[in-house]
Design a binder for these strands. Structure first.
Lengths: 339, 339
DNA sequence: TTAAATTATTAAAACAATTTAATTCCGTTT
DNA sequence: AAACGGAATTAAATTGTTTTAATAATTTAA
């Protein structure tokens, strides 16, 4: 409650000017080193708190970086966000996190708020249907933007994400290698670029193996455990009697496995199931889930680095950077047996 | 890239003063309503962006509220954070989210950053071992603080959390009612107030039923699925042969159930297991998990409201507000059978 | 028609830092 | 003793908004 300590408070208490104090606290070589020490000591003693809004008003740099994704509580983003956090922390940037829940409006609000706060940049996993104007809004106001996990058609924005098409084809090939011929694809949407890429990877793998693609084996749905659980009924009653399922992600796969188990079938024997993302839960699930590691940490780290580099002035080429996923084979998949 | 649009840009373009523009944009009755409309229209047309740091420098209100918890990716905080987000959004506050991972240092950094940004308040779930100075740091700099989900001894800070003691006793009583006598408590720590409360609730319920408390039946551990999974081995080899387990939370319970299933026992028949939190996963788990709903949404909402009210000037009494949990009975618990 | 009252607008002083150009203070050199 | 040079310090302008007290414009009342 005592009056606010500001540069001038310190200045007066030491008989110096605010200019000197400011310079000293930022380690400028312009101020003598013993004065600098004296000043720093006094600042500490008085409990001085740096006023970033005053500073950033002058310098037009805020040290704030915004990160907006579909749902931060979704474990899919967990690794990405942690990697981003680590990388930004290391460079002493403050990051503001937000969900857009695929609402374009919520996402725009976030971008606007960030502009109002003078954010230095944004990392976003764009909401479905994001209009280019919203991206421009950020850019014309000098706030660089990096995409992560999802791309946006029609822009040349720097984008970092896993190679979904390749990743799903890994999983599909694994199943084909086990002798499966009727393979369903469960969960997710085809409205995002990720969705189209994943479906493409599935289709490519089947075609390459000479298996004809049956569109009825594509069951889209929510990307949640609940979604997978509910898809089980549809999946099990398909007339094609698939013996394997490639799932959109681990959550869907775990839900689906539970649903299949409820129906009295044994996953890994009667039915093979693959996930995607390699969440912590995948290895603990029962049976342990065969899945694809999306290298999330790498994706997040690279995206953060790209933004930091851009802020530091380096202008490396835009474009999509695809990170190669890796297979994690566990017990939820096994050799084909007709059911 | 065009030059920045500020109040003075609008002012000049309309032949008015910045004072009028400012007043008009904030809907002050001081400015004539047709002038106001003209101004708003022009602001929109020019793509004006409100500069919050300049404004907040003047008003010393930033509209920023910090929220720091152990780990935002942990689903336990999911509902709480969502409720807080909703409530703050409704009052057009920007919220900055952070993890402290129970590092007191990381938590202090967050508080400092928030002070530098001129944060209006903080909602936190204090890190284990948080020193009172850190709380004071916020308060002496005029940033009110509300605790959520965990309390802190030795402070009279407003705190909102579930009634853990009561909640665990609900679960324990449920098991006792099913005839169980040897009931273990799995996971978590006794270093937090939450931990002590939960253990207390367990002890109380047993005592009240005339069952003697065996400290060997308390197996502390990580609050994760992995933790529960690993605890299974210890649990199953206890000489006391417990027939039921009260788990720290749903994640631990699901991990434990998986571990028990791996060992060939049937949860809900051979062994009864209860969780805590009622996460989405609880109802989908196999078997569906009997658990305690902590009313997270209510906890988050009340905490956010309390902060907003405080910022609006109302000074309602400090102290701990306990929210009563509720029982959710499913298939992971069943009548006692000796094993 | 004037005075008084009301309504609209604005000048100017904050807010707390940064930064450039100028100044002061020294000790050297001539 | 004057001139110079370098180091340390500072004056003052700047950043974009808010807000109070003052002024200008308009309406109403007498």
């Amino acid at each position: 409650m005592a009056q606010k300590i500001k540069l001038s408070t310190i200045a007066e208490s030491l008989g110096l000017s605010t200019a000197t104090i400011s310079l000293a606290l930022r380690d400028s070589p312009l101020v003598a080193s013993d004065t600098r020490e004296k000043i720093k000591e006094q600042a500490r003693a008085l409990g001085y708190i740096y006023n970033r809004r005053a500073a950033s008003l002058r310098t037009s740099r805020s040290g704030i970086i915004g990160v907006v994704v579909h749902d931060i509580m979704n474990p899919f983003y967990g690794e990405i966000l942690k990697a981003i956090e680590t990388e930004l922390d290391r460079n002493r940037q403050t990051f503001i996190l937000s969900n857009h829940y695929d609402s374009v409006e919520k996402q725009r609000n976030f971008i606007e708020t960030l502009l109002q706060l003078g954010g230095d940049g944004v990392i976003m996993s764009p909401a479905i249907g994001t209009p280019i104007e919203d991206v421009r809004l950020a850019e014309t106001n000098g706030m660089p933007l990096i995409l992560v996990a999802r791309s946006m058609e029609g822009t040349a924005l720097p984008t970092y994400r896993g190679d979904d098409s390749y990743g799903i084809s890994l999983a599909t090939n694994h199943l084909i290698g086990l002798g499966h011929k009727s393979i369903a694809m469960i969960g997710g949407t085809d409205q995002t670029s990720t969705g189209r890429d994943r479906y493409q990877g599935y289709v490519n793998a089947l075609r390459k193996a000479g298996i004809e693609v049956d569109p009825n084996l594509r069951i889209p749905g929510p990307r949640s455990m609940q979604g997978g659980f509910e898809a089980a009924v549809n999946f099990l009653s398909l007339p094609q009697k698939p013996t394997a399922a490639v799932c959109w992600n681990d959550l869907v796969a775990i839900g689906l496995m539970n649903g299949i188990a409820r129906a009295g079938l044994v996953v890994g024997q009667d039915i093979s199931v693959t996930g995607y993302d390699d969440l912590e839960q995948a290895s603990i699930a029962l049976p342990a889930l065969t899945t694809v590691s999306n290298q999330q940490a790498e994706v997040g780290r690279l995206a953060a680095r790209a933004l930091l580099d851009r802020l530091a002035g380096s202008h490396e080429p835009d474009g999509i950077h695809l990170i190669k996923p890796e297979m994690r084979i566990r017990q939820s998949t096994g050799p084909h047996r007709p059911r």
